[in-house]
């Protein structure tokens, strides 16, 4: 996402420019651009009124609310606990730290369907954890939040961790020697450095959560208007061979994620600019 620059003079010394660029362009055109453009081409078969009808249907709107609110809640949980975990992993020492550090990446490595059934059985009313609560967790929006928190955790930890490691001790020493308490040093020195990373981690986790399907379908209960996420609406429409309807909802999701992707890049660009000046 950062801009890449190579010295102009070196341009033609190294061979393979046309081959590698041509191959790359062909590959992404056939496998990314052509398939994704189908979404927009296919939506053209709908009139504007039909499109609006589909994407503002009560069940679709309810699903946006479920997807958006649960992804937001999971993102915020990850900001709080992900930052604490990153902090503890960088600053403190405790037994089995290296193994625990490695386990943070489990949500990236574990298939989402496996995570989905494991979390469902844990948080179901008769599950290991669910039995200790007198309210339902699985099959409610709470369950969706749990699945999305699991999926998003590594994003926040792995964006905050390197930034925290690179904060030089001198800056904190300077702050302390000038009479700042530990809390003041954290608030005024450390946190401003971490903020862009936390925001990036949140956006990545949030974007992933909006589109997540595998881990959520098992734990959500999938009740229309209550615990139905937007990707499931697309799935249901596809199973009914309602391709136009599925595509219209997909347009809403795609546009939302592109806006998010753009905002993430903007945040990173602004953060980089701040450090340059």
């Amino acid at each position: 996402m950062s801009s890449l620059t190579v010295n102009k003079k070196t341009r033609r010394i190294i061979p393979g420019f046309h081959l590698s660029l041509g191959y790359t362009m062909l590959y992404v055109s056939l496998l990314v651009l052509l398939p994704l453009s189908m979404i927009f081409i296919h939506t053209m078969s709908l009139s504007w009124a039909e499109f609006i009808d589909i994407v503002t249907a009560p069940r679709a709107v309810a699903s946006y609310k479920v997807s958006f609110s649960t992804a937001l809640a999971a993102g915020l949980l990850n900001v709080i606990f992900g930052t604490i975990i990153a902090w503890v992993l960088v600053r403190y020492s405790f037994p089995f730290k290296r193994i625990i550090d490695g386990l943070v990446d489990l949500p990236f490595a574990l298939p989402t369907a496996v995570a989905g059934i494991a979390l469902t059985s844990l948080y179901a009313p008769n599950g290991w954890i669910g039995q200790f609560f007198n309210f339902k967790i699985a099959f409610t929006p709470l369950g969706i939040i749990i699945a999305l928190t699991f999926i998003g955790l590594p994003f926040v930890v792995r964006t905050v961790q390197p930034v925290l490691q690179n904060i030089s001790a001198e800056v904190e020493e300077a702050s302390a020697s000038l009479g700042a308490t530990r809390l003041q040093t954290f608030r005024k020195v450390i946190f401003p450095e971490l903020a862009p990373a936390i925001l990036t981690g949140f956006s990545l986790a949030f974007a992933r959560a909006l589109g997540e399907y595998g881990s959520v379908v098992f734990i959500a209960g999938n009740m229309p208007m209550k615990t139905e996420i937007t990707p499931l609406i697309i799935m249901t429409k596809l199973e009914q061979y309602d391709y136009a309807g599925a595509t219209a909802i997909a347009v809403v999701m795609l546009v939302t994620s592109f806006i998010l992707l753009f905002s993430i890049n903007l945040i990173q660009w602004l953060a980089n600019r701040r450090f340059v000046h």
Partner: peptide, 27 residues
């Protein structure tokens, strides 16, 4: 292609390579 050479539209190509991460698996 992206690291050994300079060409116009490099950042755009970089964004396109990243695009599948921004798309829901269902889509």
């Amino acid at each position: 292609a992206l690291t050994k050479f300079n060409f116009k539209g490099k950042n755009l190509l970089l964004t396109i390579v990243d695009l599948p991460f921004a798309v829901s698996p269902v889509i």
